[in-house]
Design a protein around this nucleic acid. Sequence first.
DNA 1: CCATTAAATTCAA
DNA 2: TTGAATTTAATGG
Length: 249
Amino acid sequence: MHSLSLNTNSEYNTPKNGHCNICNKSNCLVHKYSDILFNSALPQSSTVLKCKKGQQFLIEGAPVNGLFFIKSGTVKVFRTGINGREQIVRFARACEIVGHRGFGTQEYYSIGAIALQDTQLHYFSKEFLQEVLVKTPNFTYDMMLFYANELNKSENKVKSISQMTVRERVVDTLLYINRKFGNLNGYLNLPLSRKEYADYAGTSEEQVIRVFSALKKENLITAKGKKIGIKDTDLLKKEISEHNFFLDS
DNA sequence: CCATTAAATTCAA
DNA sequence: TTGAATTTAATGG
């Protein structure tokens, strides 16, 4: 009766080195708690949701009813600013959590989330998770660490947007994408539009294009459409080293 | 910010 | 797989 859940569990469950075999992280929550999350005796513990590229699955202002763990694909999480401008809060990949801020007393999501590629999501209802949190202290503790970490990142981001120059923020964004998604064939392994770089860095598309052009001239990056290659990570890091903002993942 | 041109991506035949 | 249609990038005002 839980065939879907049982199948899912096995995907996370071949650890030799303790690393999750989907996201390759040693501290992966989905991997660590897959038994609890997917093999629970509780009914309807999880369902898998399929999102096509460009599909929005979390809408700002919609009532909170649960949260998502990304099974595959990538997602951007954003908030709409005062004049309709989009502020990208973060990019998320496999095994990361989306929609967690709605938990507790909050009634409505304060963020939207949209799939950047075809994406599969594990959906967990609020009721189910509350039950798990109450019964499983280790899980609750790890979730608390996760929340604390998120808060720290968010505070760093405020600092970066208010104190760094446009160029530094764009460089910081490039390093963030590189750190988080790595590179494939010499290009960042996540294709983003200049607008998306801008929305993350807190600038305009034109500014990003101009910074990219400058970086190309200086031989720090290469760009072919949406494929951006970082030529010299260390030199880029140097540019923002005085801010030491490249600590968050 | 907007307009123009170049370049890249998508899509359907 | 191609190339026409559409979208996105780049530049200059």
